[in-house]
Simulated assay, not measured.
Amino acid sequence: MKHIKYILGPALLLFMTGTCYGCDLNANTTERTTLITKSSVEKPKEQFVKIALLLDTSNSMDGLINQAKAQLWDIVNEFTYAKCGNDIRPSLQIALYEYGNDNLSSKEGYIRQVLGFSNDLDEISEKLFSLTTNGGEEYCGQVIHSSLRQLDWGKNADDLKMIFIAGNEPFTQGKLDYKDAATNAKEKDVIVNTIFCGNYDQGINGMWKKGALLTGGEYMAIDHNRKVVHIATPYDDIIIQLNAKLNKTYISYGSIGRQKKELQFIQDSNAAEMEEAVAVKRAVSKSSRLYKNSKWDLVDAAEEDTDLISELQEKDLPEELKGKSESEIKAFIQEKKSERMEIQNKIQELNAKREKYIAENASQETGELENAMISAIKAQASKKNYSWDR
């Protein structure tokens, strides 16, 4: 069951990559509005890729969990390039569940919602690193039912909605039938993808493949004990140095600002403790469009809401901005924004060179889980008008 955790982390991120369920499928069609009212063709302002990761945290899942932590940022970075229709860039939201752990309530079926749908990459990382394993009963059907019932999947048919469930026990355990869960998923337009940690045929015999096929999802089996190989490059140290400078462009505000900025640093440290290459990949993610922190950073917040600065109270400002006029605060924010964009662009440029170096010096850098996930995501995404521009 340790395998499950590993799989889920990457799986989440990867599935995000395959967004766009019907993303702007009619973008290039000729005008057909004569019989259609304006309100009937209006699309939501945002489109989402919603991924729920259901991870088995029973015994023997440590190796898999480490793989998931290491590959989380690979998946995020892959998703950065995803688009649907006419250059629509969907927003990514991830939810996390754990199941099969004796520390969880038996009344709830040994299931816990660790995180509801969130686009906070630091928070997602924090929750993955908080997971621990302990033996338990693994009820796949019940955890799928819970995620479908508890999460807000929305009603936009163009959103891509996916579940990734990972584990190594039969898919049939528990009182709630996985077939009923699949029916419920189809009603909500949610695709269930399954990842079995172990032998491919054993997973089929345990009904993991059928659990996926019932909703049009993908079945995968992985070697959860396989070590992820990271390729060091001449650009890694520079990217890590730029990441430290990037952190200094964040201006915390409000009641949670200081706590969130500290969380940013902690997740940098968690990545670095795993391996330098993981810290590099996280830095690349932080230079992408997916790393937004408007809830606690004034630069992102001001970009999202131009009236925010005039509405802020003195007590919500960081020490360096207290006593400053509104025009002085705006000038300070603009300075940090320009500095951030410059650093992020440098990281992206160096990452392009880094990826080229890796391609020229190794046949592959990815782990088994990541290979399986990206392959499945892109195969499904190609059917939904999804593409990647690098």
Rank of each mutant, 00 (worst) to 15 (best):
Ile4Gly: 05
Glu355Leu: 14
His224Ser: 09
Thr194Leu: 00
Tyr139Gly: 01
Asp62Thr: 13
Asn59Gln: 15
Glu46Pro: 05
Ile239Trp: 03
Ile165Glu: 00
Glu126Leu: 09
Arg282Leu: 13
Asn59His: 13
Glu360Ile: 06
Asn199Lys: 13
Met1Thr: 14
Asn66Tyr: 08
Ala376Trp: 01
Ser338His: 12
Ser294Glu: 14
Asn225Arg: 08
Asp297Asn: 12
Gln334Phe: 10
Ala70Val: 07
Gln47Ser: 10
Val299Leu: 03
Glu335Ser: 12
Glu169Met: 09
Ser255Pro: 09
Gly211Ser: 05
Glu46Tyr: 12
Lys315Val: 13
Trp153Lys: 07
Ile239Ala: 05
Phe265Glu: 15
Trp296Gly: 03
Trp73Cys: 02
Val114Thr: 03
Val49Pro: 09
Gly367Trp: 00
Val229Glu: 14
Leu8Lys: 06
Cys23Thr: 08
Phe129Leu: 06
Glu355Ala: 11
Val278Lys: 00
Ala362Arg: 06
Ala244Arg: 10
Glu320Phe: 10
Thr306Pro: 14
Leu55Glu: 00
Ile329Tyr: 04
Leu54Lys: 00
Leu96Ser: 01
Asn184His: 09
Glu314Met: 10
Gln313Gly: 12
Ala27His: 11
Phe171Gly: 01
Gly257Phe: 01
Tyr357Leu: 04
Gly216Gln: 02
Glu275Ala: 14
Gly367Phe: 02
Met207Tyr: 08
Ser287Asn: 05
Phe79Asn: 09
Lys322Tyr: 06
Phe79Ser: 13
Cys20Trp: 09
Lys248Tyr: 07
Ala27Asp: 11
Leu214Tyr: 03
Val284His: 02
Ala283Gly: 08
Ala359Val: 08
Asn205Lys: 14
Leu128Asp: 01
Tyr357Asp: 04
Thr29Arg: 10
Glu335Gly: 09
Gly367Val: 04
Tyr219Ser: 02
Val114Glu: 06
Ser147Gly: 06
Lys378Pro: 07
Lys210Asp: 11
Leu128Trp: 01
Asp268Phe: 03
Glu303Cys: 04
Ser40Val: 07
Lys292Tyr: 10
Asn119Phe: 08
Ile195Cys: 06
Asn270Ser: 08
Leu8Arg: 05
Glu342Tyr: 11
Ile239Arg: 03
Gln364Tyr: 13
